[in-house]
């Protein structure tokens, strides 16, 4: 949106102030000192905990770095990358991340859209629907994981109880089966994060001019036709945004997997960040973990760049 727009800058031609009276025109141009003082506190943290670690991650990916030594260790060249790109568990983690994205994105987009459109149209009780759908989003991943692991308890859990109501014989538990564990994590995630997309869609709905619906209604368009031909197309920008945000969030998934399955059974739900932290903190192979981090970093930044480009083109169209 506004990243593309030229920043609003106050440019007031002012006479150069007399020495000793800088306070009379504090916002004039050409005195960079105070500006940098305002930027410095944030800038120090930005450099120390965003740029610094990024550079160190890239450097360490070319060395046999370990946790116990403070130095980088011996030079490894591209060996860490070669190792990661040929390791089966790396590709399996990447595949699980993709699998998670495929499972969660459609319900998170479609259900959030439906809930938002319907909530926007009901006259009463909007607060209740917002509470029901959005509240889980502010809960810690630890809470949602404990709840869903319990719901998925083999044989005696709530999920098994509901299954038995429908005549399905509860198996050995959704999370204990390598074929369904990721589905269980996806269900918990959809329940947890749908509220985020829901409020994004609600916000998008606010921006559709009421006149459009009025005109359509005058022409006899049904409610469904209005949604199909007005709401859906006008919310397409929000939908693209929601999908891209969902892909980025999926690539960074860690909490639910760590807490619900620990990557198991076996490595059937191991995802990229789980592999990275395991390689670094359990195997003590920081160099290899850094190489995997760089690869994941590149993928995420690539999607984020697509997002920025999309935002810019959308902003240009609006202008």
């Amino acid at each position: 949106m506004t990243t593309a727009a030229p920043p609003i800058v106050r440019e007031r031609p002012r006479p150069a102030p007399a020495p000793g009276g800088p306070s009379r025109s504090p916002l004039r141009r050409g005195d960079p000192g105070p500006a940098w003082l305002f930027l410095a506190p944030f800038g120090i943290f930005y450099l120390a905990f965003l740029i610094g670690p990024t550079i160190f991650m890239i450097v360490a990916s070319f060395f046999n770095t370990s946790l116990v030594h403070t130095d980088l260790g011996s030079f490894a060249g591209f060996k860490n990358y070669a190792e990661m790109l040929t390791r089966a568990d790396f590709w399996s983690a990447m595949w699980h991340t993709l699998q998670f994205t495929i499972y969660t994105t459609p319900p998170l987009v479609i259900l959030a859209f439906i809930f938002a459109v319907l909530t926007n149209r009901v006259r009463r009780g909007q607060w209740f629907f917002r509470l029901a759908f959005f509240m889980p989003y502010v809960l810690p991943s630890a809470t949602i994981s404990l709840i869903w692991v319990f719901v998925f308890t083999p044989a005696t859990g709530l999920w098994a109880l509901v299954e038995s109501w429908f005549g399905i014989t509860p198996g050995n538990g959704v999370l204990a089966n390598p074929n369904t564990a990721m589905i269980g994590i996806a269900i918990a995630t959809v329940w947890w994060t749908l509220g985020f997309n829901f409020v994004l869609y609600l916000a998008g709905l606010q921006e559709i001019p009421r006149e459009l619906y009025e005109a359509a209604a005058v022409d006899g368009a049904s409610n469904w036709a209005q949604i199909r031909y007005i709401t859906l197309p006008l919310l397409s920008r929000t939908t693209t945004l929601v999908i891209l945000l969902q892909i980025i969030a999926s690539l960074k998934i860690f909490d639910q997997v760590y807490l619900m399955t620990g990557g198991g059974p076996g490595i059937s739900t191991q995802v990229a960040l789980g592999l990275i932290t395991g390689t670094a903190f359990t195997d003590d192979r920081v160099g290899a973990a850094s190489a995997a981090s760089v690869l994941l970093f590149i993928v995420i930044v690539a999607v984020a760049v697509v997002r920025q480009l999309f935002d810019r083109s959308a902003a240009r169209k609006e202008a």
């Binding site: 965003l50 670690p53 160190f56 770095t65 960040l273 920081v286 981090s293 995420i300 984020a304």
Partner: peptide, 12 residues
């Protein structure tokens, strides 16, 4: 993505 920086941040 700050989460991906967990290893270098730990070391720092």
């Amino acid at each position: 993505p700050t989460q991906v920086l967990i290893v270098p941040i730990f070391q720092e």
